[in-house]
């Protein structure tokens, strides 16, 4: 269980990025963090994974402050993937996924590790691509390779920071479906920063909307994806429509958007 308690985080003298944030992560669900640029989503994710240690307040993993957990031990519980990785070295998909076993084996792969790597590759349908170099495959496949690595890392908690960046619609949907499978079939707990509200609405079980370093509202999609909540969060006028029981937000200016010239 991950509990975030009264986190205050600031850069420089007085620029507060997070102002007293408290949150209990819901187990075996997808939690989406949404909010405008600079609302503190990525900072919150960094603090929750101890990438940036909390300045004030604490993050508890099963009741223990994560700042006091050895980094190697923490890496067996929490996996974290930052927004799309820019690669400077040439490695294969298989090499990458094997790195995921590092916290468990320190680079010396045993039978158990090899099995986990093969499973992860299989699970994301990357078996036949295992020996391909990462710079030779498409952006969507690369993102999938990174998810396979996280899966091989075999942690109950997975944090993803804008995993849909630079992915086209097909790969974005595929990505979210994979994330959904991690939760439904493998019982993982996923916390994901998403820019697209509609993806959050369609795939997340729980949405946390952030504004100015605070949690503005959290709840199931039907409670958060409403004009009443979203308008102040994004300082923008939203129009929400109901489509097969899912809320879809339209965010272009409704009055000014002109109809198609040809069909009236």
């Amino acid at each position: 269980m991950i509990q975030v308690q009264n986190i205050v985080q600031s850069y420089g003298r007085d620029k507060e990025i997070l102002k007293d944030v408290s949150l209990t992560v819901r187990e075996h669900e997808i939690t989406a963090l949404i909010g405008a640029n600079g609302a503190g989503k990525s900072t919150l994710l960094s603090v929750m994974t101890n990438l940036v240690p909390a300045q004030s307040g604490q993050v508890l993993l099963h009741g223990q402050d994560i700042r006091n957990i050895k980094s190697n031990e923490l890496a067996k519980h929490i996996a974290f993937l930052k927004q799309s990785q820019q690669l400077a070295i040439r490695i294969t998909v298989n090499d990458l996924v094997e790195f995921g076993r590092f916290p468990h084996c320190g680079g010396k792969l045993g039978d158990e590790d090899k099995r986990k790597v093969a499973e992860a590759l299989d699970y994301l349908n990357m078996g036949d691509m295992a020996e391909k170099y990462l710079d030779k495959i498409s952006g969507g496949q690369r993102q999938r390779a990174f998810i396979a690595m996280i899966l091989a890392q075999d942690t109950p908690y997975i944090f993803l920071d804008e995993p849909l960046n630079n992915l086209d619609i097909r790969y974005s949907v595929e990505m979210m479906k994979n994330v959904q499978r991690l939760v439904s079939a493998l019982g993982k707990t996923v916390i994901v920063v998403l820019h697209d509200i509609n993806f959050a609405s369609a795939y997340a079980h729980h949405i946390v909307a952030m504004r100015d370093g605070k949690i503005a509202k959290e709840g199931p999609p039907c409670e958060v994806v409403t004009a009443q909540v979203l308008d102040p969060v994004f300082e923008h006028k939203f129009h929400i429509i109901d489509h097969d029981g899912k809320q879809v937000s339209l965010y272009y200016d409704h009055d000014e958007a002109s109809a198609c010239k040809f069909c009236g």
Binding site: T49, K76, F102
Partner: peptide, 9 residues
């Protein structure tokens, strides 16, 4: 990268 390395402990 640093974040990648930190993720792996």
């Amino acid at each position: 990268g640093a974040d990648f390395a930190k993720n792996l402990g």
